[in-house]
Every structure is written in structure tokens, then in C-alpha cells.
Design a protein around this nucleic acid. Structure first.
Ligand SMILES: [Zn+2]
Ligand SMILES: [Zn+2]
Ligand SMILES: [Zn+2]
Ligand SMILES: [Zn+2]
Lengths: 143, 143
DNA sequence: CCCATATCTATAGTCGATACAGGTTTAGAC
DNA sequence: GTCTAAACCTGTATCGACTATAGATATGGG
């Protein structure tokens, strides 16, 4: 049985994050030592490693919740899991296209700036006037 | 002079967002009508359009705060602005490389799945075992 | 036994908004 | 002039996925 610190070391997930995952019900409530400290067994390590890997691949915690539920049911068809991964791939592709447009605009404005006074700065000028852009790059940038 | 609703319509920035920008000091406190409603002039429209465009290009509000301060000082050298844009370009490039790796992994796992039972699902299998991945794709996925 | 480290809980903060509640002002129709 | 619906006001709470802090308790090595 591992302490939360050892589990953290074994998976690369920070201690407060593990507690957070338990709090939101992504990890089951851990067993406790006589002194009330969390103890983890091997399946817990695998479950957390699964979560970490899915996070690295960009899945949301809600998606991961569903994927974990599916993983616990080996006889079911995997169409639901493939659907979630397909959605994720589509989201990644959308973000890629958007970021490529942003990269092009940023490169363009930097290349056109002669690095003189602010009054002549192409960066400031383009930011103030989207008509100077080559792409549309609409929508919020967060994604 | 425009009401906040007209300003919103003119710039595409939602009304609560405009109030939020004022609250955090990104927009100066707007003048008020006799009935205490915000009123905006033409420079306010331009300032908000600048903010919106910079957000679309992925700049953080803190970066935008600096860029606005620079834009207000036309005689200064523009190196600081170019530096911020360069940082943003580097961040976008980093996110692009990362997303490309994610896209490859997601495509691979989906292509290898025969869509049978969960027990044989390649998606679930790869998520549980990073050794099956071709790339490293480390770091958090948020960015 | 002592002490440094690890762990515990609960709460607040991050970013960039968005949503809601409950009240006031305004603009247009009559 | 009056009515009503829309827009506006403030303040607070919420989202996702953590991260940080404070103050208390437990554990493990010397
Ligand atoms: Zn410049
Ligand atoms: Zn543009
Ligand atoms: Zn599958
Ligand atoms: Zn992997």
C-alpha cells in the first residue's frame, strides 16, 4: 500500500491534484491508515496513470470519467470510447487550424515591423485593425 | 456617445465582458448618463476593438494591458511590443507542436481500434499505457 | 524521544469570462 | 402622460482544472 506521496511519485500527478480528483469523484475514496492518511493499492496506481495519460492527451475530466466507467465494463462494445476519442481528435484538429492561422498572423506582423517607434509599429497597427490581417481567425482564443 | 449595448454591437464584445474589462482596469471607468448608465465615445470603441482583436490572436489580458500602455505612447521604441508579440508567437508554436503530437496519437489509437468489445479497445488500452504511444506528448494539455 | 517531513482539512485564488438575482432607467407605442 | 418591454445597474456565484495557503496532525529515521 502506498501513501499519497508515493502514489504521486509513481504517477507524476501532484499530491493536491490526487486529493482534488478524489473530491470530485474521479477517484474512489481512498482507504485510510490508523492515523487517517490515504492508502493506495496497485489498481489505484493504474487508474491514476490512466487519468494522467488521458489528461496529457487533452481529454477533459468529464470525458475521462466516462472513459473510466467504460474501462470498468470490458464486455460492452467500445463504440462509446471511440466516439469520445473521435470528438477529441476533431477538437484537436480544430484548435490546430486556428493556431496555424494565429501563427501566420503573428509572423506576418512581426516580419513587417521595422522596429522603430510605437507610432510606426506594425504589431500595434495590426492589433488595432483586423483589416490588415490575412485570415479571419475569429472565435475566442482559449481553445 | 454610445450605450454599452451599442458598444457591444459595434465591437462584438459582450456586455458583461465590457463591464468585466472595466472592473479589472483594462478599460478606463466610463462616463455616466444622468441615470448612471455608461456612455462611450469613439476612442473607447477603438480601444475595445484593439482588445478584442488581441484576444482573438491569443494574447493574455495582461499582455494586452501592456500593449495598450505602449500604444498610448507613440514616441517610444516599439521593441517592447515586438517582444510581447514574439513571446506570443513562440507560445503558439509550442502549442502547435504539442497539438500535432496529440493529433498523431489520437489518430493512431483510433485507426488501430477494431471497434469490438471494450476489453479489446485500442483507445482504452493506449490510454492505460503510454508505452504504446509513438510520441512523448508530456506536460499538461490545457495550453 | 525528537524533529523534520509528510499528511490532513478547509478555504481562497488563478484566467477569462458567463450567469443569475433583484432593482433602476430608458425608449418607444399609445 | 402613461405603460411596458427592453436595456441597464450592482453584486455575487459559477465554470475547468487545478494551485496555494494556513493551521493542525501523523509518520519515520536517528
Ligand atoms: Zn514593432
Ligand atoms: Zn485579425
Ligand atoms: Zn475502441
Ligand atoms: Zn502517451
Amino acid at each position: 500500500m502506498l501513501s499519497i506521496g508515493k502514489l504521486s511519485g509513481a504517477t507524476g500527478v501532484k499530491v493536491p491534484t490526487i486529493r482534488y480528483y478524489e473530491q470530485i469523484g474521479l477517484l474512489p475514496r481512498a482507504g485510510r491508515s490508523t492515523g487517517n492518511q490515504r492508502l493506495y493499492d496497485r489498481p489505484a496506481v493504474e487508474r491514476l496513470a490512466f487519468i494522467r495519460h488521458a489528461r496529457e492527451l487533452g481529454f477533459s475530466l468529464e470525458d475521462i470519467r466516462e472513459l473510466l466507467a467504460l474501462a470498468d465494463d470490458p464486455e460492452k462494445p467500445c463504440a462509446a470510447a471511440d466516439l469520445i476519442a473521435g470528438r477529441q481528435l476533431a477538437a484537436v484538429n480544430a484548435r490546430l487550424r486556428r493556431l496555424e492561422a494565429l501563427r501566420d498572423e503573428l509572423q506576418r506582423m512581426l516580419a513587417q515591423c521595422t522596429s522603430g517607434r510605437i507610432a510606426d509599429c506594425r504589431v500595434i497597427e495590426v492589433l488595432g485593425n483586423h483589416a490588415l490581417c490575412a485570415h479571419d481567425h475569429a472565435e475566442a482564443a482559449g481553445a
